[in-house]
Simulated assay, not measured.
Amino acid sequence: MTNTKRAFPKALKIVLILVLIAGAAVAWIGYQTFLAPSVTEEQEYLYVNTGDRYEDVLAKIKSQKIVKNVRFFDYAAQAMDYPTLVKPGRYKLTSGMSNRRLIGNLRGGYQEPVKFRFENIRLKENFAALLGENFEADSTAFVEILNNGEVAEHYGFTKENFFTMFIPNTYEIYWNTAPDKIVARFHDEYNKFWSTGRREKASNLQLSPQEVSILASIVKGEALHKDEMPLIAGLYLNRLKKGMLLQADPTVIFANNDFTIRRVLNRHLTIDNPYNTYRYKGLPPGPIMLPSIASIDAVLDHTEHDFIYMCAKDDFSGYHNFAKTQAEHLINARKFQRALDARNIKR
Rank of each mutant, 00 (worst) to 15 (best):
R6G: 13
P9Q: 13
L18Y: 12
V19L: 15
A24N: 02
F34Q: 10
N49F: 14
G51V: 01
G51K: 01
D52N: 14
A59T: 08
Q64A: 15
A76I: 04
Q78W: 04
Q78C: 07
L85H: 15
T94K: 10
S98Q: 05
S98P: 03
S98A: 14
N99L: 10
L102N: 06
G108R: 05
P113C: 06
V114I: 15
N120C: 05
F127A: 12
L131E: 07
L131Y: 04
E133N: 13
E133K: 09
D138E: 14
S139H: 11
A141P: 00
L146Q: 08
N148F: 09
E150W: 02
E153N: 12
H154V: 03
Y155L: 09
Y155D: 10
P168H: 08
Y171A: 04
Y171E: 08
A178Q: 06
D180N: 12
R185S: 15
R198W: 05
L207V: 09
V212D: 03
S213C: 13
H225I: 09
G234T: 08
G234W: 08
Y236D: 06
L237W: 02
R239E: 10
K242Y: 06
K242L: 15
M244R: 03
P250A: 13
P250V: 08
T251Y: 02
I253T: 10
I253G: 04
F254I: 07
R262E: 15
R263D: 13
I271K: 13
P274L: 12
G282E: 08
P285V: 07
A312R: 00
H320R: 00
I331R: 07
N332D: 14
A333P: 00
F336N: 09
D341M: 08
R343E: 14
I345C: 05
